Amino acid sequence: MNWTDPASIGYPTLFLGVLIGSIVPIVPTGAVVGAAAAVAMTTPHLTLPLVLLLATLGAAGGDLITFAIARLGGDAAVRWLARGQREDRLAGARERFRRKGWQLIVVGRLIPAGRIPVLLAAGAVSYPWRRLVPATLAACVLWAVAYALLGVVSGGIFDSPLIATLLAAVLVLAVTGVVNLVAKRRRDKAKERQGETKVGS
């Protein structure tokens, strides 16, 4: 590997960043994909198709490892995955998963903070691998395309790789914040409706 070639550093960094961030959610994987797409749009060092492929494979690999830990790991492993997750959210995910698992895998990957509860629920109900793998791949393709588009937009606005990368990261964070806010409001409204139903009964 030629470490003086930016591609030799960029591609492994993209793949490992998304893979690790999909297992241990401390790396902003969406921002990594958006930044890589912005670089691909403004320099010859990376190509967009390969960015999409590696982002998809890294995300899918991380999700499948997370599911394997949830399904095959012991109680300590599951508690480690569930750290920071609210118990009511986990319980709700398990119940919904029994009814529409495939759709939840796709939506959980696209919604910030939705992935871990869904994968834990999948492990808890022993969701079959033959269904999980294609659903995960489809979800990760959609996810990679969505965040790469933000990088493509920023790369189309600015010719400078640095500015395009920074704009892509800002766009990813802004979109994530908006999606989180919308999801929170929907959860709050659902709780209000449940409260009203209980009072009425």
Score class of each variant (00 low, 15 high):
A135K: 01
A168M: 15
L64T: 10
A68F: 12
R115N: 06
P117K: 03
A91W: 01
R94V: 10
Y127G: 00
A144R: 12
L150R: 12
D159C: 06
T176Y: 09
L64C: 03
A91M: 02
A59T: 09
S154L: 08
A60P: 03
R115M: 00
C140D: 12
L132V: 00
V107N: 10
T176H: 11
G108D: 11
R98K: 04
V51I: 13
V51N: 05
G73M: 06
W102V: 07
L52T: 03
L52R: 04
S126G: 06
G73K: 04
L54Q: 03
S154P: 09
R130I: 05
V153Q: 07
A77T: 08
G73W: 09
T176R: 11
L110K: 01
Y147L: 15
L142K: 09
Q85C: 03
A82E: 05
R89S: 09
V78M: 07
A55D: 02
A169D: 14
A76L: 10
V170K: 10
I163A: 14
I69E: 06
A55N: 05
W80A: 14
R83E: 04
I163V: 15
T165K: 06
W80M: 08
L149S: 14
I116Q: 03
L50A: 10
L166I: 15
L137V: 15
R131G: 03
A144S: 15
A77N: 08
R99S: 09
L166W: 14
V141A: 11
L81M: 04
A77P: 11
E87Q: 15
L54E: 01
V178E: 14
T56V: 07
L90V: 08
V153M: 08
T56K: 00
E95L: 03
Q103S: 06
T66S: 15
A82M: 02
D75N: 08
A146I: 02
G58Y: 00
L50I: 13
A122Q: 05
A93K: 02
L132E: 05
G73V: 08
L171P: 12
L50M: 14
A138F: 13
T136V: 07
A77Y: 12
E95G: 06
A135I: 05
L64W: 09
S126Y: 12
A169V: 15
I105F: 11
W143A: 09
R96I: 01
G156W: 09
L57N: 05
I163D: 05
R96M: 11
G155I: 09
A168D: 13
L54Y: 10
D88F: 06
I157T: 14
T165S: 15
I116L: 10
F158P: 08
V51Y: 05
L171I: 09
A70C: 12
R86H: 11
R94S: 05
P128D: 04
G74L: 13
V153H: 01
F67V: 02
R130Y: 10
V125S: 08
P117H: 04
K100T: 06
A122W: 00
S154T: 11
I105C: 02
V133T: 14
L104I: 06
G151E: 02
V172I: 13
P112D: 06
V106F: 05
G108R: 03
R89V: 12
F97T: 04
A77K: 08
L119G: 01
V178M: 14
Q85A: 06
A93L: 01
V178H: 01
L50T: 13
V153R: 06
T56G: 05
L110G: 01
L171D: 10
E95R: 07
L104C: 07
G108Y: 00
V178D: 13
V172H: 10
A60W: 08
R94C: 04
